[in-house]
Amino acid sequence: MEILNFQFPSSKVKARRAHVGVVGSGDLEILMEPSIDDATHVTIQTSVTGFGDTWKAVLERFLGQHPEAASIEINDFGATPGTVALRLQQAVEESQS
């Protein structure tokens, strides 16, 4: 078990709260809420240790496309980077729907 924290500068305000994903191996749960400052805060709790750089790269890529300020809580059960990216996209869709 590892807990990672990241903070990124953001420019826009995020719309609504979103909760996506599944508690189960190879998957993850994401809780996304509007952030009250001009930053995106990400907290990741993961069952797989040693992938901090991979998480940072996936998040940077995602936030490059979606610069909205948000508090993102991730509960990971060994999802692949592809699954993480898909779930982040799903969270954005849900927060805008």
Binding site: V20, G21, G24
Partner: peptide, 10 residues
């Protein structure tokens, strides 16, 4: 579980 949780459209 995801299919039935009613949270996401896709």
């Amino acid at each position: 579980r995801e299919y039935c949780d009613g949270r996401s459209l896709r």
